[in-house]
Design a protein around this nucleic acid. Sequence first.
RNA 1: GCGGCUGUGGCGUAAUUGGUAGCCGCGCCAGACUUAGGAUCUGGUACCGAGAGGUGUGUGGGUUCGAGUCCCUUCAGCCGCACCA
Length: 935
Amino acid sequence: MMEYNFREIEQKWQDAWKKNGTYTTNIDPTKPKYYVLDMFPYPSGAGLHVGHPLGYIASDIFSRYKRLQGYNVLHPMGYDAYGLPAEQYAIQTGQHPAVTTKINIARYREQLEKIGFCYDWNREIRTCDPSYYKWTQWAFVKMFEHYFDKKLQKAKSISSLVEKFKTNGTNGISAVCSEELVFTADEWNAKTEHEQQELLLHYRIAYLADLNVNWCPELGTVLANDEVTEGVSVRGGFPVEQRVMRQWSLRVSAYAQRLLDGLESLDWTDSLKETQKNWIGRSEGAELNFHLSFGEGRGELLTVFTTRADTIYGVTFMVLAPESDYVKLCTAPEQTAHVAAYIASTKNRTERERIADRRVTGVFSGSYAINPVSGTEIPIWISDYVLAGYGTGAIMAVPAHDSRDYAFATHFKLPIIPLIEGCDVSQESFDAKEGILINSGFLNGLTVKQAIAKAKEYISENAIGRVKVNYRLRDAIFSRQRYWGEPFPVYYKEGLPYMLDESRLPLELPEVDKFLPTEKGEPPLGRARNWYYSEDKQSTLLSEEPSEKYPLELNTMPGFAGSSAYYLRYMDPKNDQALVSPEANQYWRNVDLYIGGTEHATGHLIYSRFWNKFLFDLGIVCEEEPFKKLINQGMIQGRSNFVYRMKDTNTFVSYNLKNQYETTPIHCDVNIVSNDLLDIEKFKAWRPEFATAKFILEDGKYLCGWAVEKMSKSLYNVVNPDDIVAKYGADTLRLYEMFLGPLEQSKPWDTNGIDGVHRFLKKLWSLFFKNGNLLVNDDEPTADELKTLHKTIKKITFDIENFSYNTSVSAFMICVNELFTYKCNKKAILEPLVILLTPFAPHIAEELYYVLGNEGTVCDAQFPLCNEAYLVENSVKYPISFNGKVRFTLELSANMTKEEVEQTVLSDEQTLKQLAGALPKKVIVVLGKIVNIVC
RNA sequence: GCGGCUGUGGCGUAAUUGGUAGCCGCGCCAGACUUAGGAUCUGGUACCGAGAGGUGUGUGGGUUCGAGUCCCUUCAGCCGCACCA
């Protein structure tokens, strides 16, 4: 072979890997396992751009490295195939989402294969595949059949709960429940089946309830909290409003403490853990009971949650969320109209409007309550700055020490009582949790911290409330009024939900005529024919009218359903008896390394941890946390190019001349620009309106401007990996993606730099071949050559362990540059080098390994070990500095003592020259590093 | 507002973790070989200065024999959370 023909080599080895099943993985008890996982992609119609494979390349390098070290590596890939874009596309074009999804997946697969990943494609999964979502439905059924026991902090079966109800009622029960329920065994036993089922819904981990949900009219569906940012949908950016709907939910909040505790043991970045902690939002505080002092509800209790029990003497009013059940209780007859008007006005505002417009609004309820500690009477207000979903939906307002309460109090002219010695609350509240209490009865003189503790104690002892921990984490709303998702394995009998038997799973997604809601406003599944369940039929999709039929659920599951346990399915993807067999699970356990984007910090990474913990409680999986180590790869940004059009003309001005004219910058396709030099012919051909364009050049060239922006089709800065692979090869692409910079950092893609790594591969090739002749020989390596090799082994090993792949690539370059100057063609050096390079550039490594006369694949070679003996230096180049400034260097023997170094340096004539007769005050010698002379 | 991350040549970045700032690569400059070069090879390239030398890691201060690295201050950019009581 004459020169480095990457096309031929890459095709050859990709074919060989496929044919030989090089990446097929099986359980092998003789080897330690290692599980490397990528966050699987949603196969969009746009295909992959150069930013997508970044994380995949990083994980591929680690997988191959671990394999070379003797691990049995599980490295699978699949597709998060359900989702909104395919369905939106289906609505527009009538194309079935299954069809477009299939096409998109094929394209993704093709693109991924070109890059030479070591995925075991036999394990590929698709979340929309019935054999896969059978297990999504199965897990849902299990969640329906379990409740969460607070004391045990663990999921337990509903049937065991029912047993307790039968004998003891709710006495001694510590089940997490949607609302506080109390009944005796007799009361339970007297209930009808229907009543019992209705009641049990309050306990189930997967439950159906009327909830305040994020409704997105444009998408025609509800959304989970993590699918909404700043009042608009994450997908599409459509407005979201609050609405009460009967929806399936998962009791994620029950797991809040375990989700928080579990973070400790994880090797994730601090920022990611911080985001999760934030999302879980644990706050320690107290619930306090206030009695209504007069009116309809006189004597009734209002419970509030506070983290500042110490401020109880500063409570000058109470505020209820407009949605709170207390509103009805507290509204005095004379205020009914005002309250109703206010509630109507808040209802009409979308979440976005509420956030954007922070006007202080509210209405007086007409009622008063008694402060249980100070005994003072305070008014009760209603305002939407209090959230219904947090705490009890009611607060005690302490305007002196809470800025929101302060704003409210000043607006409605309510009293403000300062409680901290020396604080000034004339302009703003004093929110800091520090200082000495005043105006606070038995708390006076205490620090805030002491006062909180004492107040809590007082509350418990006097039974006016209780110490309470609150979490911000909400239950996950699990229903979507959409077509392209997993159907629920649920049918309804007299309005109550029942689960399909496991033997009936999967319940397959039915065909519909249109992917739109029905005329009655039901979700698209309402259009499916024979979408009924019958107990006497084997099939759920009926061809004939059954004698007795029950409606099936019309909602489908959300996007995160299918991605919550996919890592488990990869362990045993073809198993039709279980999500994962105990053997497979106990061997592969959990993911050792997970790489993906930071956008899943609060969605997927919370839900799958919850899902996994639930399965752990059931004894189905053996590890409580699914992802041991997690790395967020940075985003690859686009580097856009601009041309500058003179106003009202079709003439374009080169970058450095643009200021001499009135111009508008126009995005220009980066694929027709090289080193910011525009290919004018291609530009003219790019779009018809530019065919007749004229140009004002500088030095005969048209230079473009540039900017770093998001990589996006609309900015014409998208670079397709296929093009790069075609032009430079997959190995070059892989190396260059890593060479760009630290994995976790965001950085712009600039194809221009790619020549450097491509040249490196050619240079490596030239160590093996010259004019078609193999140069490799069996000569003994020199000390220098060995040093170069082992220095590189050490560096690469360290870098891979630390995911510092950018520095590995430059270490390879340094190594090859050095071997090149030594004209080293020795097998003893080149063979270990090739193995070392395998994780990064597997195709060329495989070819060169073969050229060196090896049988089998380089993937099964042994990763070379560094022999420190070759790295020992016998001399050190000491930088000699004076007052910290380096003036010259001195090469000295490495085995000299401190004293010897000092003597030699001080007697050196360059030193004498620097000192110019002065006496050194102090000499610092750091052996092997530096000498500093203070003078 | 709270929390996190990042600031180093024209560009992407490196720095053995407190010890010669700018490795590697792009780009640029010069040269060689070439009919040609968007091929290949060689050398140079932080800034100021002819040079000796001086300056330099967003800003200002501090610790230290010595700071890109540690501490404080401040500015800028990015990301996350945000009426969470």
